[in-house]
């Protein structure tokens, strides 16, 4: 039911082995909190992304549980270690059961 969901991720293209890199992620999502009412005074049901995870070559970097207090278009910034060349996998889990995925590969250089 959430429409126009588009993940965006910023990861460096290369890193030195063992280097720490900063990752920024954003996904367009209205994050309906469940607290608002429509023009008739009826509560608008909650519809948010409730979990976000990042993995690198299958190993966990961060696992975030989101509550309705996270802003529209959830944004996260965090640091990851890059032990080898490989692929970051980002996954967002929607209340409606949708799963959004994005991958970014990184080279050692």
């Amino acid at each position: 039911m959430a429409s126009g969901v588009k993940p965006r991720v910023k990861v460096p293209k290369t890193a030195a082995a063992g280097e720490t890199i900063t990752i920024k992620t954003l996904i367009s999502h209205k994050m309906e909190s469940g607290q608002r009412k429509d023009s008739d005074g009826n509560p608008i049901p909650r519809s948010i992304i409730n979990r976000f995870t990042t993995e690198f070559n299958g190993e966990n970097v961060v696992d975030v549980a989101l509550e309705p207090a996270i802003s529209t278009n959830p944004y996260f910034q965090f640091d990851a270690v890059v032990p080898e060349a490989g692929e970051f996998k980002f996954t967002w889990y929607d209340d409606d059961g949708s799963v959004y995925e994005e991958t970014k590969s990184i080279k050692i250089g």
Partner: peptide
């Protein structure tokens, strides 16, 4: 509640 961050083995900081 706002959010919970769990840090995995490859989390740098």
């Amino acid at each position: 509640g706002v959010a919970t961050f769990k840090f995995g083995p490859l989390s740098a900081s």
